[in-house]
Amino acid sequence: MLTVEGLECAYGEALVLRGVSLRLAPGQVLGLLGRNGAGKTTTLRAIMGLLRPRAGRIVLDGRDLGALRPYEIPRLGVAYVPQGRGLFPFLTVEENLRMGLLVRDGDRRRLEEIFELFPALRERLRQRAGTLSGGEQQMVATARALAADPRYLLMDEPLEGLMPLLVEALLGVIGQLRARGVGVLLVEQRIEAALRAADEVALMEVGRIRYQGTAAELANHPDVLQTYLGVRRDRRVGG
């Protein structure tokens, strides 16, 4: 179980998270939705240890992550797909994937499993990641995180800019991860897709979780989405 309790984070004087609490269970997909600037990315960065919280706790299976150095957190099985993909653009695809493998000293057999999920990557191993198309880069970003053999996966807008076909493919991968017991925290602007993928949904507004419920519940309360995301269900949240 990955638990966030009363998390407060600030950039300088600006308080961005004002007491965020979340629970992510193994095999659960938790959608974290909200407008731009609500604090979704900051929440993920804080869990990864890239930002030191001002208050609150992040606990992974009983272990307080606040006491750890940032590089120790991924080794416990928390992997990250950063916003904008965050690939190492001048490393080859193979080297990017190796960065994932090295986190928990996985061997190359793990890559074979990943190529079954993303067959197109096999052809691109020698290419610099920065020269790939957007969709391919997104696949590498997800594949790199999977190479780290995560128990919990934090994904920051993995669907951004993907063609519908790739969106379906990625949602399929998320479904497979769930089936294998991986907990996925999915930050997404594509509400429709996120609601389909998620078991539970948390809605963020100005640094707080304003609503939490099952995706099915939320589907029956379009007014809630309207209130916190400012959209009707059939539209994306504004860019």
Binding site: P70, P74, R75, M99, G100, V103
Partner: peptide
């Protein structure tokens, strides 16, 4: 090389 290109993401991958 990874740290050179993006230290934050490098940290998130155990560097």
């Amino acid at each position: 090389r990874a740290t050179q290109q993006d230290p934050d993401v490098a940290r998130a991958f155990g560097v």
